[in-house]
Design a protein around this nucleic acid. Structure first.
Length: 351
DNA sequence: GCGACAG
DNA sequence: ATCTTGTCGC
């Protein structure tokens, strides 16, 4: 059952959130902490992770949170975890982490318990790191809570600290030559908050890379480029594809009211596969995958009409919603510790 | 009223 | 975040 969008939280909540961001921000490490990060070829790096949250259309509560782990440098999927979740917090610019991060921490913790050998050595996060209103975006937040190196990768420039997507900025973008080229994003204070990166030769729009945790900006940019088969780094792209696919499968399998009889064979939707069996069309030559419009992303497979009809009216949630009722003890300890350090903090237990 | 607005 | 539709180049 679809739930309505939550409204904007009261100022009191935003104050608590700001406070929590300030506390956790003191724990961010913005330099390389691992040996592989300093190696020119990243030797020693074997697993890169990506996380994403995809939403059900017309339902601001139901979503699919996904964590994938890819081999490096092959970038083949070794692990995939998708699960439906019920989001509690609304989206507020500057507070994205409070909406999404609990479920991502959850996914990392599951992996830690079930397949510790597959734990990624670095996590790509959809969103910003220190390039943020208060220097603590979702990539920092996830990094601190999981203690994993994290890289923030945003698709749009967050206009903060004097940074503007103005004519000068656009000109700098235009001057980027080939994949891997970048320019610094300097805030008003003179600090470099991130880099605009042309992620591959045919990409028009840059990526906005910033430090999340336990990694230097230089290494973050270099590794991001090394993980891009298309504009979006492969770990994030796979997490996105698979979480969206998971939602489609779930709706398609359970929520198929007979809307109309099939007319053509090619309108048939492929059989839903149980778990992560879907793969890219392996036979597609790399160059054919570029679209003229954006010059980067391959076209998504279009779903047949029947599926679109169901999708368009997908107001009903047809899965069992998982109750999220527990907080990880290490997270509790962390926040408590922060509160005691910054005395007087009646910081709220995150929920 | 206008502009901004990670996901 | 989400969806749509068509168009271009190889």
């Amino acid at each position: 059952m679809a739930r309505k969008a939550a409204g904007r939280p009261p100022e009191e909540t935003l104050s608590l959130w700001k406070r929590e961001q300030a506390l956790l921000k003191t724990l961010v490490v913005d330099r390389d902490t691992e040996a592989w990060q300093r190696d020119p070829a990243f030797s020693g790096l074997q697993r890169v992770g990506g996380v994403d949250v995809s939403f059900v259309k017309g339902d601001s509560v139901s979503a699919c949170a996904s964590l994938v782990v890819l081999s490096y440098p092959e970038l083949e999927v070794m692990y995939e975890d998708c699960r439906m979740v019920s989001l509690t917090a609304p989206y507020v610019s500057g507070f994205l982490a409070f909406r999404e991060v609990p479920f991502l921490v959850d996914a990392v913790q599951q992996l830690r318990e079930k397949e510790p050998r597959l734990m990624p050595q670095v996590l790509f996060v959809d969103g910003n790191g220190v390039l943020h209103h208060r220097g603590f975006g979702v990539a920092c937040h996830l990094g601190v809570l999981t203690d994993l190196p994290c890289i923030g990768v945003a698709k749009k420039l967050l206009q903060v600290d004097g940074l503007e997507n103005n004519a000068l900025h656009k000109e700098k973008i235009r001057l980027l030559q080939g994949g891997g080229d970048s320019f610094p994003l300097m805030g008003g204070s003179g600090t470099v908050l991130g880099m605009a990166l042309k992620s591959h030769d045919h990409s028009t729009k840059p990526l906005y890379v910033s430090v999340g945790h336990k990694m230097s900006l230089e290494a973050a940019v270099r590794l991001t480029h090394g993980c891009c088969k298309f504009r979006i780094p492969e770990p994030v792209r796979q997490a996105d594809i698979r979480s969206r696919d998971y939602i489609r499968r779930t709706l398609g399998v359970q929520g198929a009211p007979a809307l109309r009889p099939e007319r053509s064979k090619k309108a048939q939707r492929p059989k839903a596969c149980p778990q992560g069996a879907s793969e890219e069309p392996a036979g597609s030559p790399s160059l054919r995958a570029f679209s003229a419009k954006d010059g980067n992303e391959p076209h998504q497979k279009k779903w047949p009409k029947l599926q679109q009809r169901i999708w368009g009216r997908g107001k009903e949630a047809l899965w069992e919603v998982e109750a999220k009722d527990a907080i990880f003890s290490f997270l509790q300890d962390l926040v408590t510790k922060c509160n005691s350090i910054h005395q007087g903090g009646a910081g709220h237990p995150p929920q």
